[in-house]
């Protein structure tokens, strides 16, 4: 492979302790992230898709260095940063959250919010403001917006401010956690288009977390599908969408109504079952829901198999389905 690998994880795990409601005894663990091997190349956008509770946001927080993993390795630019992050790398990894309303301190003007990360780095106020203006322009805002408070901005404008704040430290890697899921259709299109343009201009690498496969298909180069804390399928986006290998990916894609009344929408969705009690499962995590599951699926955890170059699936039966 020519392009360099920027982000790499090995057997990354994050477990949460579950305690009983009243006596607070430890009654188990939630394996939010359970052995994730991931590689993100420089300049690539990797979309992490999955439903709520799949662990995608937890993985995002770990990769943004906001949460310590339980186990595993996290390598960034060839450096092991699993347990500590060198000072010079701190500004190189940033995160943008879903909710632009709570991401900005309502008592701070946009100016203060945006320059804050620069002040931490030791910039003078004047330099910082100049840079803030540059980045506000980059995200489609202007100098005027420096003086306003977040409540005077629309949701889309707020998300632009949040993006400017993330970009201002000149990061290499940005974790975008559902950045458009709270926005309207027309605003979502603006922000997605903006993110795509900025990525090329600034040579960025994105981890884009979303539950929306359509958004993932638009923004990403590579799609990683997460289920119950594990990556069950990963590959180049057109491969994943045109020829999904995992039954879960297939059911996710089929759940989307095509925006065309002539097309027939026939979701292939198995019966609902809880994914909460996956703590004691030895086999495939999806076996309980999978319409194709065989004995081996309940007994043995499938490996992540590379079916064609770069397209991997965690399923025993991928070639039978």
């Amino acid at each position: 492979m020519d392009s360099r690998i920027l982000v790499k994880t090995e057997k990354l795990r994050k477990y949460y302790v579950v305690r009983s409601k009243i006596l607070k005894r430890v009654i188990g663990y939630v394996k939010a992230v359970d052995g994730v091997d991931l590689e993100v190349k420089e300049g690539e956008t990797l979309a992490l898709v999955g439903e709520s509770g799949s662990g995608k946001s937890t993985l995002g927080l770990v990769l943004a260095k906001l949460l310590k993993p339980t186990d595993g390795r996290y390598i960034f630019k060839g450096l092991d940063i699993t347990w500590s992050l060198p000072k010079e790398l701190r500004s190189k990894i940033r995160i943008v959250f879903q909710d632009p309303y709570s991401a900005l301190n309502p008592r701070l003007k946009v100016r203060e919010s945006v320059i804050e990360p620069l002040i931490v780095q030791g910039y003078s106020g004047k330099e910082a403001v100049e840079k803030a203006i540059e980045y506000l322009k980059l995200v489609g805002l202007n100098e005027e917006h420096l003086k306003v408070y977040p409540h005077m901005l629309s949701g889309g404008q707020r998300q632009r401010v949040v993006i400017a704040r993330a970009l201002i430290t000149e990061p290499d890697f940005i974790v975008l956690d559902e950045p458009t899921s709270m926005l309207d259709v027309s605003t979502q299109a603006q922000i997605l288009q903006l993110l795509k343009e900025i990525k090329i201009k600034r040579n960025l690498t994105y981890l884009f977390i979303t539950h929306n496969l359509a958004v993932a298909r638009f923004i990403a180069d590579t799609i990683a599908v997460m289920f119950a804390g594990q990556i069950v399928e990963i590959g180049e986006k057109n491969n994943v969408f045109s020829k999904p290998l995992h039954p879960y990916t297939n059911s996710l894609i089929s759940a989307y109504p095509p925006p065309d009344p002539e097309a027939i929408w026939k979701p292939e969705i198995p019966e609902e079952s809880s994914i909460e009690n996956t703590t004691n499962i030895n086999g495939c995590r999806y076996a309980d829901r999978c319409p194709y599951a065989k004995n081996i699926c309940r007994r043995e955890e499938p490996p992540l198999i590379e079916v064609i170059k770069g397209h991997k699936v965690k399923c025993h039966l991928y070639n039978l389905i």
């Binding site: 299109a189 603006q190 359509a214 298909r217 095509p258």
Partner: peptide, 23 residues
């Protein structure tokens, strides 16, 4: 504009139509 600003699952869209401003 609305129809062409929605990302799609069934076909690859490389550019979204943008309606300027906000409602």
């Amino acid at each position: 504009a609305l129809l062409s600003s929605i990302p799609r699952v069934d076909v690859d869209v490389s550019e979204l139509h943008i309606i300027k401003g906000e409602p």
